[in-house]
């Protein structure tokens, strides 16, 4: 990869300052960014590591009962420390990549990258999470704006993600057998005011909510409630791993499995 300047600030304020430099790029766990830089698909002039900012690391529960996760918290830490508070989220984190990747990759990095096949966007959108940055709060419904596109402005850092905890939840991932990314992943969460269904891996627009399934499951939270639905419309990804129709079909299958597993 091309060389770059390296900065490792200890506070969010210093990180924001460092990111104001020309062609500066934030570095989370680097599990996507570093391979991208090796291929010279990215060549930042400065990398600003967010891995030494104590206020951005850790899992806690606030007085509203929401699970709050620092932006630089690794998947392994979420899998372990969120288990008692939000088991569906912890289970999703425990399925990302492989153990070594989970020890480096971070929730903020995953959400900022918004890979169309990543797992965390499904949890954030499916939970109606709040994405807190150094300058504002962004609702998950307004945050995801298409494949690799988010509401983040240049230099803006995800400092924390707040998840309202559902009554029941489950994530079902149909893995692409070589990469282990989600060919289709569905996160289902049942809240007192309704059910949310978020789908990753399937659409060219990235993560999305399947509104028809949400309505049907809000009325009756049972696997059979979606039987009569057609698979979701939309621009499904079609590639050598699966056609658009196949992916749409998988969305329905994985939604049913998630509902059944959520209990």
């Amino acid at each position: 990869m091309y060389n770059f300047e390296f900065a490792k600030p200890a506070t969010i304020t210093d990180a924001v300052k460092a990111l104001a430099a020309e062609d500066a790029q934030a570095l989370g766990g680097g599990q996507t960014l570093l391979p991208t830089m090796k291929q010279r698909l990215a060549s930042p002039a400065t990398l600003v590591s967010l891995n030494a900012i104590p206020e951005m690391i850790g899992v806690c529960v606030n007085d509203k009962g929401e699970v709050c996760i620092g932006g630089a918290t690794t998947h392994a830490t979420v899998a372990q420390e969120a288990r008692a508070h939000y088991p569906g989220l912890a289970a999703l984190a425990s399925q990302i990549g492989d153990p070594a990747v989970r020890n480096r990759g971070t929730i903020g990095g995953s959400l900022a990258n918004n890979d169309p096949s990543a797992c965390y966007p499904a949890a954030a959108l499916g939970s109606g999470a709040l994405i807190k940055t150094n300058s504002r709060d962004i609702a998950a419904d307004a945050y995801f704006q298409g494949m690799f596109a988010t509401a983040l402005a240049p230099g803006e850092i995800i400092t924390e993600v707040r998840f309202p905890v559902p009554q029941k939840s489950n994530y079902q991932k149909f893995v692409q057998p070589a990469s282990r990314f989600a060919l289709v992943g569905v996160f289902v969460a049942k809240y007192a005011d309704g059910v949310r269904v978020a789908v990753t891996g399937a659409s060219t627009d990235g993560v999305f909510r399947w509104a028809e399934a949400e309505a049907a499951l809000s009325a009756d939270f049972a696997k059979g409630a979606i039987d009569a639905l057609s698979p979701p419309k939309g621009d499904m990804i079609a590639d050598l791993h699966g056609s658009a129709d196949y992916r749409a079909h998988l969305v329905k299958v994985m939604t049913g499995r998630a509902v059944a597993a959520a209990g």
């Binding site: 390296f6 490792k8 570095l27 680097g30 599990q31 570093l34 391979p35 090796k38 990398l47 590591s49 891995n51 392994a76 492989d98 153990p99 070594a100 990747v101 020890n103 480096r104």
Partner: peptide, 29 residues
Amino acid sequence: CDTSQCGACVVHVNGKAIKSCTALVADLD
């Protein structure tokens, strides 16, 4: 592989397994 897929480069950092081909030394001071 140098793309963090094969795992031949796994080492322990602060007791945890990571892929050393996908971590910067400067970040591990």
